[in-house]
Design a protein around this nucleic acid. Structure first.
Ligand code: MN
Ligand code: MN
Ligand code: MN
Ligand code: MN
Lengths: 221, 221
DNA sequence: TATTTTTTTTAGATTAATCTAAAAAATAAA
DNA sequence: TTTATTTTTTAGATTAATCTAAAAAAAATA
């Protein structure tokens, strides 16, 4: 099960995976270059290699999609990344804005038994510290239906369950405003002037957030 | 603090460290080639590079020693290796013969805060699952004085506290014979014929071990 | 449809880590 | 102290991953 790929190949697979689960499923060379911090020429080289290994479907000038094998490999890396993030926060006491870079390294450790034991040790968590779902050992992802606060109606209630922006500044801001995962909110008022929103947090405190912030907080209704 | 070195450089530094703390402090090109599974020519190339970076003292044809900087780097890798081994055994339930290869990968994860938090999480252990001392965060190693069973006198008592052979076959054998770390033993008889030794284990069971096995079990008197 | 702009690929180099084969130096043996 | 053996270094190649600059293809605009 699961052939070994180089550190670099894994990062490309992961990049393609994240890009293709975003909007469109076909991913372009430039998009990959952007998030892997490389140049388009380097990406083209790697795409040939990954296609050779049957991890992606690649036709010149037409973008790429992951094959089943490629997708499995990518999902496995995502699984490892997210489990390590849970470990770092739950067991070692890191803040949710501090774990991503370390998990970027840990996700490349190759040991099936390690990751499955870690999963059990953590109590088989369903989501990582940012609310992102953790694929189970068979690669299945159980994604809960979430909506952005910016898409909620007046007087609607929900529980903060994820974020769609992972930068440290954003996460620290949410922390400071008490808008962390599990927090109950109610949309109290939609400000017409600039789209900002007034929330009732945990039934009492009220907080005003900008539309930009509201767009990046995901809520379970 | 602590510059970043490549994965490969770290493995060479660690190899030199282990070789130089063994017997003689000056390490030869061939010795390094042997334990890094490379050829002498490759080692020479790397030695030039490490010397350039002032991590080793290297004079052509004369072998190498670690500089202070090189030794610090090496000790830090050893610290990480051993702490991860404790984690794998104590928290994830791996056996002591299963953890080395995984730790070989984990030891290259670079994060000072990660390793210090891990250290605290594990309760600042003094030794790894094989009894090897764990350097503290300043790099100091508190090595207990241990003797080989093969060097013990008749009727002498001690507690098994380490091994000088880390192969899986050897560790599994000790496990099967109940000669794991912390076990109390007494040398009951020294067999003249082949040098094998009869032990009293935990005050009752008696076990005969070969001289070869006795040489690789370390005891605190 | 013809032209311009953008995207992608190719060509050719570079760097890190490795190798084999040959040369040079050090060590051991005669 | 020669000669032979072993160890180490150099020379020259290779592979993976990257880059810049130029060419080719696709997409957008006029
Ligand atoms: Mn992350
Ligand atoms: Mn995450
Ligand atoms: Mn080990
Ligand atoms: Mn160990």
């Amino acid at each position: 099960m699961s052939t070994i790929h180089s550190f670099t190949e894994e990062n490309y697979l992961k990049a393609i995976y994240h890009l293709s689960t975003g909007n469109n499923s076909v991913v372009s060379t430039n998009q990959i270059a952007e998030i892997t911090n490389t140049k388009a020429a380097s990406v083209t080289d790697m795409l040939k290699k990954l296609a050779e290994k049957k991890l992606i479907n690649y036709i010149k000038y037409q973008g790429v999609t992951l094959t089943e094998a490629g997708k499995n490999a990518a999902v496995n890396i995502v699984r490892k990344h997210r489990l390590w993030e849970v470990f770092l926060v739950e067991k070692l006491g890191f803040k949710w804005d501090e774990v991503h870079d370390i998990a970027e390294e840990l996700e490349h450790i190759n040991s099936e038994s390690l990751i499955n034991r870690l999963d059990d040790f953590l109590g088989n968590p369903a989501a990582d510290p940012h609310g992102d779902p953790i694929p189970d050992r068979s690669g299945t992802i159980h994604q809960k239906k979430l909506v952005r606060i910016s898409d909620m109606q007046q007087d609607q209630n929900g529980t903060i369950s994820g974020v769609s922006e992972h930068s440290s500044v954003f996460l620290k801001l949410l922390e400071k405003m008490g808008l962390t995962l599990g927090t109950k909110i109610r949309v109290s008022e939609l400000i017409e002037f600039d789209g900002s929103i007034i929330l009732i947090v945990n039934d009492h405190a009220d907080r005003t957030i900008s539309r930009e912030v509201a767009k990046n907080i995901l809520v379970m209704l």
